[in-house]
Design a binder for these strands. Structure first.
Lengths: 244, 244
DNA sequence: CGCAGCTTTGATCTGGCTCAAGAGTTGTGG
DNA sequence: CCACAACTCTTGAGCCAGATCAAAGCTGCG
């Protein structure tokens, strides 16, 4: 699964856990971990299950900002204002560890190592996703979906799950929102990849058959059209999501 | 000008400057402040001039990530890895204040206020731009350019420059890269806005004639076609830049 | 003055959105 | 356990914003 704004690795978790009082939370499918506007009190380390993070557009529509799984940290988006900008919802039965952020912060003052790790939460999670988003603007829909799959594979491998056999708990609509396309396009792209024999698709169950073909595709054009094979895109002008 | 990943307000500068030894740097047009891969030692507070921040795509092409002016902080992208991901180039004669980051960090440990401000660097600058980028994916080219102009106006007003009369030092190519479109589209959109009487364009010199019309345009479709006036876009499915 | 790099404008093409219609799938109540 | 309703997913046809290709105007520096 993709990482959301606040994300980090397992070893960071370990260090945080040693230092700070925290407690587990168990959620069922559809249950909310926190909502936009909620007071920012805890950050949450996902231990099992998958979460959907989202922001609200000014017109009230939901914009998916990422999917989080074991090893990811959720909730840091509230740091700036003291309230969460976005929300997080469990997509299945799941467990998180809630850590009071105030305590984290005060402990960080007396502990340089912990300070580094709290800083690292931002540095790794946020700056990396910033970089990703900028470059993502220059990719076609197919490239974005392929990257999503590769990233899902990598993340699953990191935490010890199968790197080629997923049961995506999120809907096509969620994926479409995250990747900035329509559900129809997501569906068509999955079908196209399946037709090429690169993946197998059966509703929410997806199997990567040829990860190398997928990686090779990373710099290629859509392949949605009737062309026999995808065409190389010449190294030309980029498109990018913009800061402003 | 738009803010780049590390950005903050003037009052933060003031507090940082009181606490940490720093020194000024003067640059001419085209000179590099730091490059991708450089060791991360300083953060830089821009005092005058405009800088272009960029990242390198894996194929070596440059992706503009923001423009920074007086009151912005540059260079924090190196925090995660100890090396700068991106680079920054002066677009004209300019002055920055270089601050050794290690000192900033150690001072932060003994000073809760300073710690808050260093945290604030991330919270405000990065998280906000994260939010922006996500929602920016759902906007048309015209909306993105209009937002760019409005933001430029606001930033200029904040630091005491004219909020309606700019001499953009960056090329159309830079703007196009930042906003994720082609130079032709940037040029056409400027022309369209000029035709509507909303702005005046003369190469790099741009004047905002009707800021309210610009603001009103914020939620409207392109207007590039032959239609007499721009058409409202119904509140429908969003497009978005994605984390992954 | 002349070349080299910007910028503008026109003509055409196309990836991905829209609209529309089915085919699964899941949940609910009888 | 089945039937019906409510979703979710797939697939097709057509359209349009913005990319691509092409060709002039500007600007400014040596």
């Amino acid at each position: 699964m993709a990482s959301s704004p606040p994300a980090q690795t397992e070893r960071d978790d370990a260090i945080l856990l040693e230092q700070v009082a925290c407690f587990p939370l168990y959620l069922q499918r559809g249950q909310t971990l926190f909502s936009p506007g909620d007071k920012f009190t805890y950050v949450y380390a996902v231990q099992s299950g998958v979460f959907k993070s989202f922001l609200l557009q000014h017109d009230g529509r939901e914009q998916v900002s990422g999917f989080s799984m074991k090893g990811d940290v959720l909730g840091l988006d509230g740091l700036g204002t003291g309230r969460h900008d976005g929300g997080a919802i469990a997509l299945g039965t799941s467990k998180v560890l809630a850590m009071p952020f105030a305590e984290l912060e005060s402990k960080a003052r007396s502990n340089a190592l912990l300070q580094r790790h709290v800083c690292g939460l931002f540095a790794r999670g946020i700056v990396r996703s910033y970089y990703l988003m900028l470059t993502l603007g220059s990719m076609s829909s197919m490239e974005r979906l392929v990257r999503f799959l590769i990233r899902a594979s990598e993340r699953c491998a990191e935490v010890g799950y199968s790197d080629s056999d997923f049961n995506f708990p999120m809907t096509r609509q969620d994926i479409a929102s995250l990747l900035g396309m329509t559900i129809e396009t997501v569906s068509r792209l999955f079908s196209a990849l399946a037709r090429e024999g690169v993946i197998e698709v059966n509703q929410k169950h997806i199997r990567i058959v040829d990860i190398e073909a997928l990686r090779a595709m990373h710099r290629m054009r859509s392949g949605l059209s009737e062309s026999p094979g995808p065409v190389m895109r010449p190294p030309e002008a980029p498109r990018a999501a913009a800061v402003l």
